[in-house]
Write a protein that binds this DNA or RNA. Structure first.
Lengths: 181, 181
DNA sequence: GTCTATATTGTGATAGAC
DNA sequence: GTCTATCACAATATAGAC
């Protein structure tokens, strides 16, 4: 069974994704995690530390993802676009959660995202030997994350304005090849 | 002189951009606008209506921008990438403000942004006669806005990870030409 | 480790004077 | 149209029992 700490972070993500940052109060998170507020506070003595916990989780998941990106058989560019779509993976959820946290005034959230973005760009530039192409592809990935942050969870509802289906992904990957080639 | 209503909306934007959604309380906005809370409430009887006012402002500015985009001499694709960079224009400020509002649980904010995005995609697809290229370029613009939302105002500080300078813009526009051509 | 109070502050909103 | 109170409530955090 997952540790209470992890279950609380899961609940925090869940509320952030489905109801937004404003609704992610200690009460709401504790309730969703199935513990009392006091129980939550035992694991995360302050709300800042709860946010810090989610940032740490995201950073760890990002390191694993960067490794997969570097080692990808189809190349980092294609891997990056493929994985930038919102598919509800643990990484996706943590990323969107931290992105939403930013608005709460948590400075660490911006710094965490910025560090991850820097890493992606570096991997792309190294693999492609073309800074301009790397920038362009990085922007496309950011665009996909933009859609995720403004569409994931409850807010998603009626499908986005960007390609998320398999056909659209193939078309997008062809554009990537065109930029790279 | 700008109407009190406009000055309050300006102040609302300013606080949203520099301190985040959480800090954009009625007190903070009133103080920044140079009026009392009661004075603010006279113009915007509730916080939802204040948010509504900013969404309306953004929608109006977006309509003007869409017109310029359609009429652009260099074509909508280049215009779109050029204007998606954060340059602190009234449109940029309203857009980032509304984007930050979203996290506050204001449903109208998401809907407003989604409508604008749909419009952009439509203009691009119509002009390029190539849905895949339109999608890709739209994503690059979203990426630039992503950077803006996570970098504008006080949070900007140390320069982003994406091209914002003139050299980088030129490189980006070359990639756009490559996608379109 | 988890719980039930409770204290404290901040926030949105109302009422009514000027 | 703008102001000064003031209210009601929600949110973080503390204290201490079990």
């Amino acid at each position: 069974m997952a540790s209470a700490r992890d279950r609380i972070l899961d609940a925090f993500e869940e509320v952030l994704l489905t109801e937004g940052e404003r609704a992610a109060t200690l009460d709401a998170v504790a309730s969703r995690a199935g513990v009392s507020k006091g129980g939550l506070i035992y694991h995360f003595p302050s709300k800042d530390l709860l946010a810090h916990g989610l940032c740490e989780r995201l950073t760890a998941l990002a390191a694993e993802d960067a490794e997969r990106m570097r080692a990808s058989s189809e190349g980092p560019a294609r891997y990056y676009i493929r994985s930038s779509r919102y598919l509800g993976t643990p990484f996706d959820r943590a990323f969107v959660g931290v992105a939403r946290l930013h608005q709460g005034g948590v400075a660490e959230a911006v710094e965490t995202i910025r560090t991850i973005e820097r890493q992606w760009l570096e991997i792309l530039a190294t693999a492609l030997h073309d800074d301009d192409a790397a920038h362009a592809i990085k922007l496309m990935g950011d665009g996909l994350y933009f859609q995720a942050v403004y569409g994931a969870g409850e807010f998603a509802a009626t499908g986005g304005t960007t390609p998320q289906g398999d056909d659209d992904l193939d078309a997008l990957l062809r554009v990537v090849d065109k930029i790279v080639g």
